[in-house]
Amino acid sequence: MSGVAEISQVEDSVRELLVDVLGVDAEQAAEMESDTPLFGALPELDSMAVAGLLTEMEDRLEIMIDDEDVDGELFETFGSLVEFTAGKLEEGA
């Protein structure tokens, strides 16, 4: 998973998740860039929301996430979440 088109697809799925799961405003999600902070910056994102987001990611993207991966750091920025998701999709491919 290195093509530009593929990464932008992953970005779109992650944006969709943030909107659907957290109720983030669609415009706000569209403006997110890889260094946009998430955890600690989005009031919607508490520990329960992190758990919900991961579980919904598994269901929608058909990936498996180990509990060891579950970490606030993963949600530090929009970019870190996209990178994690792309990695998981690649593992499953």
Partner: peptide, 12 residues
């Protein structure tokens, strides 16, 4: 999973 992860993330 959601319940378990909420606890794990909170503890972390």
């Amino acid at each position: 999973n959601m319940l378990v992860r909420t606890r794990i993330v909170g503890d972390k």
